[in-house]
């Protein structure tokens, strides 16, 4: 639950950086809808690598995986499973 909150806060900060103050629900598209651009995506990649140890080189990179809070949580879940 805390992880979901932390990722949500990070995504809200990314959105606010471009003046987007609208909220979002967990399944909302953020990358494909254009609310987050590629520069934001690479900040998100770095956040997931550093905070949750996600290795995109190992698991493969698919922009769809970072599109919504739900899909990001699935990526984090996979990384946690792999590290156990």
């Amino acid at each position: 639950m805390n992880e979901r909150h932390a990722v949500r806060t990070f995504l809200l900060n990314l959105l606010q950086r471009t003046g987007d103050r609208d909220g979002f629900v967990d399944s909302d598209s953020l990358v494909m809808s254009g609310r987050l651009d590629s520069v934001d995506t690479l900040d998100l990649v770095m956040f997931l690598e550093e905070k949750y140890g996600v290795d995109f080189a190992q698991r493969g990179f698919d922009m769809n995986d970072l599109d919504s809070l739900d899909s990001i949580m699935a990526v984090i879940g996979g990384a946690i499973q792999a590290s156990i």
Binding site: D37, S38, V39, L42, V45, F61, M63
Partner: peptide, 29 residues
């Protein structure tokens, strides 16, 4: 960077998807 993103979005996306991220996730981490 923002101008490039706004000017020719799908060309930029092509380069980001097939050149930028494959390099970014593998090297100089």
């Amino acid at each position: 960077a923002e101008f490039w993103n706004r000017f020719y979005y799908y060309f930029k996306e092509l380069l980001v998807e097939f050149f930028f991220f494959p390099t970014y996730i593998r090297y100089f981490k």
